[in-house]
Amino acid sequence: MITTVTMNAAIDKTYYVPRFPLGKVTRVSGMIADAGGKGINVARVASLLGAQVTASGFAGGSNGRFIESELAKLGIAHDFVHVEGESRLCLNIMDEEAGTSTELLEPGPTVPQEQYEQLKMTVKQLAGRSRVLCFSGSMPAGVPVESYAELVAIARQAGATVLLDASGEALVRGITAAPFMIKPNEDEAAVLLGGPLDAGGSECRQQLARLAAAGIACVIVSLGADGAVALWDNRLYRIRVPRISAVNTVGSGDAFTAGFAVALAEGRAPEECLRLAAAAGSANALQRRAGWIDVSDVRSLAEQIAVEPMSV
């Protein structure tokens, strides 16, 4: 089983508008509402890829009930800790004329210490029966900044292989607990490294090794449309993806994590884990909905993705 933990679950609403001028009334031509938050996107894509998945985290109010009902419709098990207040609403406004995406992200509810302690117990229980456990996304108010480090340690001790997709101080603290995999983007990696990543150059291996120094087996840095680089057990890989006509890239990083989790849970070789991850991430960009894939797109794209060892 794969378990995902979304600390700040959301309802993701995507609005499609012909144009999005500021200060004007704009009529929406199309709207999609889904259960969201990074970990829930991971859960949905992993489920679409055929994995048995349980989604956990915090959920509150009527928005939380909507999130749980949407997961149930898809046959995804859930085990959320319920909190007072409302789970957040996140808006993505797609300007079809300009081809731009504007996101408005609510902060989410404040989580009391009691509910955080309850989540730690839930994570321990779920990790004990999961092959892979993914922590994804931002933390709501009230959750201590070191929470990912605590939760990663709990999940590892219970026997799960842990993936961490976070940013900022949450990632800095989380790294200290040695998750199996982290996946910063270029900007996030630059913050951790104190300077830009030399993605195709002679410094790349040394830079990724610095990020892996805490005992992380696999460090992946996503490069957007240019694919990714990865250091896995001291082997350096360049992942190249085909050019596509992207429709909506929101959720592509989560789909990447889902593909990686599924392949890892199936015991595939590193190259195949990275290939499925990149294929799922690219397939997500072909969908109007965030955190969705067409499995036929994943299969087609996987045949076009190159996972090449790098000697630098």
Rank of each mutant, 00 (worst) to 15 (best):
P270H: 13
R156F: 12
G195V: 01
I220Y: 01
R235C: 07
G267N: 11
G168V: 00
V262I: 09
L211Y: 06
E188I: 12
E146Y: 05
A141M: 05
G201A: 07
L223M: 06
T176G: 14
L211M: 15
P184T: 03
R238N: 15
G194R: 06
L208W: 15
R210Y: 03
P144S: 14
F260E: 07
S167R: 05
G137P: 04
G267W: 08
E169D: 10
G174I: 09
A158K: 12
A141P: 00
V143T: 03
L231E: 13
A155Q: 08
R210G: 04
A149Y: 01
R275E: 15
L163T: 02
L236R: 12
E203Y: 09
V143Y: 07
G194Y: 10
A213K: 11
S138W: 02
P179Y: 08
T249N: 11
A153G: 12
E146I: 00
L276T: 14
P242I: 02
R210A: 01
C273Q: 15
G215I: 03
S167I: 00
A209L: 04
G259N: 12
R210I: 03
D226S: 04
S222E: 08
V262H: 09
E271I: 10
G227E: 05
W232H: 15
R243F: 03
P196L: 09
Q206K: 08
I182S: 09
P179K: 12
A212S: 04
A265G: 15
A190H: 14
P242V: 01
Q157G: 05
L192E: 10
Y148S: 00
V247L: 12
A255T: 00
V229K: 01
N248C: 09
I239C: 06
G195K: 04
S202F: 00
A160L: 00
G142T: 09
A170G: 05
W232M: 15
A160D: 05
R275I: 15
R275K: 13
V262N: 11
V229L: 10
I220E: 03
G200F: 11
V152Q: 01
C204W: 09
F260W: 13
S202I: 01
G137D: 01
D165M: 00
R238I: 14
T257H: 04
S138N: 01
L223F: 02
G259Q: 13
A269V: 07
